[in-house]
Design a protein around this nucleic acid. Structure first.
Length: 437
RNA sequence: GACCCGUUCGUCUAUCGGUUAGGACUCCAGGUUUUCAUCCUGGCAAGAAGGGUUCGACUCCCUUACGGGUCGCCA
């Protein structure tokens, strides 16, 4: 039996992390088994559907790298993939229920008559779960067709899974109690049910259910907050799934080869933004310099900084120092432009050593005498200046940092010296000396 | 309220009856980096509670507590 999974969002809001993870698990499962991943839009609630939401969902999935083999924009042999366009198919399946005598009219709507017996499902994550349908108060016959003629979720969802030959339904645990209903419907149709896997929900840090508006909930916010899609995917995969060992940083491809439903946990997990950022940093550090520069560039441009010839080496100098891409502009502005400001606190600290004036007074001249500029040569010059002033070179490194960058922290000094080069270094030392005076 | 699922450091998790209960994030201390970050070392920190079963239970069973979910002509 070939594996066919699906993600079936309703376009009533942006893509949130819970939905994204459901999509991810379906996608990973399909890719792992060489199967097919279907995207189906459940847009039966016309009042709440919006085109923006639809675009947000498509865009969010593409950003995460979750491509679909069948669905909107790509087509497929089991379309249409918008439920709003599948009316005739539903009418046909509804007729089967009528013929079988399993539905009855109630107030203009049509209800499905449940079989009053215990229903057992074999969930791939939760195991065997039995719901007793003899207790009618807890399981009233459900409406499958509204009085306005439209069909409800349970009906269209089941019909589409059947029609689209879905083999595995991986969805949030909030659907666990719906499954017996779906099983009864499928049985009434005389069809074979797909396998079900209900994955635990994602909670807020305080344990409440994560929903719209909660911090970190909207996938659409992640790109501009400086996250890499591979990091977000990695992080949400670890919320409810574990490789069962100590590894925790994975690329999308690595997740595909390792993923299995047996490794999905049963307990809900809380969303921890701190760790998500740490995962992002790990992914950033695994990028090669050119890729990092390409990812960071839009953020640097948006901050209004000039992209010079040294851009790639500048990016390489800060690659391992940021958690989010949004931190890049601040980390490199003094390398990309010369009209930066000097931090007062750093200046005060740098100037607190009385030897600094003497040392730096000589430094520009020594720099100027260097024929072949390099970080080592510059440091040697600093050593010489320090020695002649009777100061320790180690104590001059911080002042040098302030002189060249205007602040007390930043990239490695060797990187700064190399990127700045001789003339800019001399100019900055001169500016520094004027500020000291 | 009824029904269902769940419960290991603050958080994400490992453990398939016998372990000093491991790793990671966060935090703290020390080291390296002449700053910060990275990195290294160390530290704080957990089996919800009570009963069973067993030579032995975090692991199996029951009860309670707590958390989450579901009970729509929403999806």
């Amino acid at each position: 039996m070939s594996v066919r999974t699906r993600f079936a969002p309703s376009p009533t809001g942006y893509l949130h992390v819970g939905g994204a993870r459901t999509a991810l698990f379906n996608w990973l499962f399909a890719r792992h088994h060489g199967g097919v991943f279907v995207l189906r839009v459940e847009d039966t609630d016309e009042a709440r559907n919006t085109d923006e939401a639809k675009e947000a969902i498509f865009g969010g999935m593409k950003w995460l790298g979750l491509d679909w083999d069948e669905g909107p924009q790509v087509g497929g042999g089991f379309g249409p993939y918008f439920q709003s366009e599948r009316r005739e198919i539903y009418d046909r399946w509804f007729a089967k229920l009528v013929d079988a005598g399993r539905v009855y009219e109630d107030g203009g709507a049509w209800r499905f008559r449940f079989d009053r017996r215990p229903v057992t499902m074999h969930d791939l994550v939760c195991g065997e779960v039995t719901i007793d349908y003899r207790d009618e108060s807890n399981t009233p016959d459900m409406v499958v067709k509204r009085s306005d003629g439209s069909y409800v979720f349970h009906f269209v969802n089941v019909v589409d899974d059947l029609e689209m030959r879905i083999s595995h339904v991986i969805r949030g645990e909030d659907h666990l109690m719906n499954t017996p209903k779906h099983l009864q419907l499928i049985e009434a149709f005389g069809m074979e049910a797909p396998k079900y896997a209900h994955i635990p929900l994602i909670l807020n840090p305080d344990g409440s259910k994560m929903s719209k508006r909660d911090e970190g909930a909207a996938v659409g916010d992640y790109p501009r907050q400086g996250f890499l899609p591979s990091a977000v995917v990695n992080f949400i995969a670890m919320l409810g799934w574990s490789p069962k060992n100590d590894e925790e940083i994975f690329s999308l491809d690595e997740l595909v080869s390792r993923f299995s439903l047996e490794q999905v946990n049963r307990a809900p997990a809380r969303f921890d933004l701190e760790k998500c950022q740490w995962v992002n940093q790990q992914h950033l550090m695994r990028l090669d310099a050119a890729s990092f520069a390409r990812e960071a560039r839009p953020f640097v441009e948006q901050a209004g900084l000039p992209i010079g010839d040294s851009f790639e080496s500048v990016m390489a100098a800060v690659k391992d120092k940021v958690r989010l891409l949004t931190e890049v502009p601040k980390a490199v502005d003094f390398l990309l432009r010369d009209d930066f400001s000097y931090d007062d606190e750093a200046m005060a600290k740098a100037g607190s050593n009385p030897a600094v004036r003497d040392v730096f007074g000589k430094l520009a001249g020594l720099f100027d005498k260097i024929d072949e500029w390099s970080a080592d040569a510059a440091k040697a010059a600093l050593s010489e200046a320090a020695a002649s002033a009777g100061a320790k070179v180690g104590q001059m490194m911080f002042p040098l940092r302030v002189a060249l960058t205007g602040r007390g922290q930043g990239p490695d000094m060797a990187d700064v010296l190399n990127i700045l080069g001789k003339q800019r270094s001399i100019a900055r030392v001169n500016v520094f000396n004027q500020k000291l005076a």
